[in-house]
């Protein structure tokens, strides 16, 4: 099944991530290049718990597949994806 191969992108909507800039990721969905749109699945996640492990300064966090990236921006998510899809 094709849908199972989709890369899951989870944007943390926890309080810390939100205060530290998660709302900047709001437009992420629309900024994914068309050729990748079918390959990813984006959704919001209540709290990934990373703020307690890695510190609030690294928020906002986004999980891409199995990897979590800190200080996430639309650019850093797209960069990560371009590495995966290369």
């Amino acid at each position: 099944m094709e849908s199972q191969e989709k890369i899951k992108i989870r944007v943390c909507q926890g309080t810390t991530c939100f205060v530290m800039g998660a709302s900047r990721l709001e437009g992420l969905e629309t900024q994914i290049p068309p050729q990748w749109r079918q390959k990813v699945e984006i959704s919001a996640q209540p709290c990934l718990g990373m703020c307690q492990k890695a510190g609030f300064m690294k928020a906002p966090f986004v999980r891409i597949g199995d990897e979590i990236i800190g200080s996430a921006t639309v650019d850093s998510v797209l960069e990560k994806l371009s590495g995966i899809f290369k």
Partner: peptide, 17 residues
């Protein structure tokens, strides 16, 4: 509101909980 948000962050208060 910014200071309120910072207060939540500093105290690790997760609002959804």
């Amino acid at each position: 509101f910014e200071e309120m948000g910072a207060l939540f962050v500093a105290l690790s208060i997760e609002l959804s909980a």
